[in-house]
Amino acid sequence: MNRKKFAVVGICAVLVLTLGELTGIRSFVDQALRPNVERDAFGWLSGSQGEEALLGRIRREAEGLRREPIDAVVDRVWKAIPGYNGREVDIESTFQKARLKPEGAEIEYLYKEIKPKVNLEDLGPHPIYKGNPNKPMAAFMINVAWGNEYIPPMLDTLDRHRVKATFFFDGSWLKKNPEIAKEIQKRGHQLENHAYSHPNMSQLSDSLARLEISKTKEALKETLGVENRWFAPPSGDFNQRTVDLAAEQGLKTVLWTVDTIDWKKPPASEIVRRISEKVGPGSLILMHPTASSRDALEGMIQVVRGKGLRLGTVEQTLSSDRVELPQS
């Protein structure tokens, strides 16, 4: 009898142990199949300890990734030079994204920009010849008062390379050629002011200079719905009074950094060579709708991009917004 009792007790003990093991296995399986809510960049090291370690790492590395903003200045040679935004890691957004990634995944840092203390608007009326030299961007500025036959192929080249330029319209040309102007606008380019009748602005009275600017500003608004912001004086002829009169109408006076000198009808190869030698971060590249620039445009695009610069409009190039190029 005692042996039977002993056997029953033994069998019960085995059953208890077996059920315990099965329960443990099932719990493990349930854990593995449960939605991966608490796993983060540290894998199974979840919970407050793992998240604190991840957050601490992000904060440490954020210090080395910070870039200070650069204030706008008035340079002795280049006159007004725009500022350039800095950047800092958006720690909270970076952490929230990183904690959901699998074990061993690289942290993707998210940034927010830091505005300079001094911006272009704070400098007062000064001519602008270039963007900030720390910004890896350049712009084509195309002054239009003639050369209609060269505009379509230039637009096609810009389209093919996904480049947006800034066209400065002579107001009298705009009045005579609204359909061409609308086609340029349709292609997504920036449209700005090149006075009305291509005069030497420095030789005009205040009233005539003011009228040259205002008539084209009104034509841009009436014909194209454009709110004009920039003024390029014809032939680069201006004085401080010109800059002040443009500023009265809310316009900044912009010149150029690099000139194609395409009006002298050089071969395309000479234009490309000149751009290659002189273009750099912040460059504004002047051209007109000419046969020379038409033929050189593709080569110019390749040269600028080959120097690690992004091509954009004058507005984009002279803004303080950061440009982050892909790491090579």
Score class of each variant (00 low, 15 high):
Val323Thr: 13
Ile128Phe: 04
Val243Ile: 00
Met1Ala: 05
Asp244His: 06
Ala139Ser: 11
Gly312Cys: 05
Arg322Ser: 12
Ile301Cys: 03
Arg310Glu: 11
Ala72Cys: 04
Ala80Glu: 04
Thr260Asp: 04
Gln316Thr: 06
Val29Gly: 02
Arg187His: 14
Ala7Cys: 10
Ser328His: 07
Leu245Glu: 02
Ser27Pro: 01
Ser27Cys: 04
Val314Gly: 08
Gly104Asp: 09
Gly50Arg: 00
Gln49Phe: 11
Gly188Thr: 06
Glu108Gly: 11
Lys5Ile: 12
Glu106Thr: 13
Gln249Cys: 03
Thr216Asn: 09
Tyr111Trp: 01
Thr290Ile: 08
Arg67Lys: 05
Glu52Trp: 00
Val144Asn: 09
Lys215Glu: 05
Asp122Tyr: 12
Lys4Gln: 13
Val74His: 00
Asn239Thr: 07
Lys217Gly: 09
Ile275Lys: 07
Asp206Lys: 09
Val77Thr: 09
Glu277Tyr: 09
Ser207Thr: 14
Trp146Glu: 10
Gly56Glu: 01
Lys164His: 03
Asp206Gly: 15
Thr157Ala: 10
Ser293Asn: 13
Asn200Asp: 09
Phe140Pro: 00
Ala138Phe: 04
Asp170Leu: 11
Ser293Arg: 00
Leu211Gln: 14
Val314His: 04
Lys175His: 12
Phe42Tyr: 08
Ile81Cys: 02
Leu54Gly: 01
Ser319Val: 06
Asn132Leu: 06
Pro116Glu: 10
Phe168Ala: 15
Ala165Ile: 00
Asn85Ala: 13
Arg322Ala: 14
Gly10Glu: 03
Ile25Glu: 06
Arg3Ala: 12
Pro281Gly: 02
Gln316Glu: 15
Met137Pro: 01
Arg310Val: 11
Phe140Gln: 04
Val303Trp: 07
Tyr111Pro: 01
Gln185Thr: 01
Arg273Cys: 09
Thr223Gln: 09
Tyr129Asn: 05
Asn134Asp: 14
Leu208Pro: 08
Arg57Phe: 10
Lys221Ser: 13
Thr18Glu: 08
Asn239Ile: 05
Ala32Val: 10
Leu22Met: 10
Asp90Thr: 14
Asn132Gly: 08
Tyr109Pro: 12
Lys135His: 06
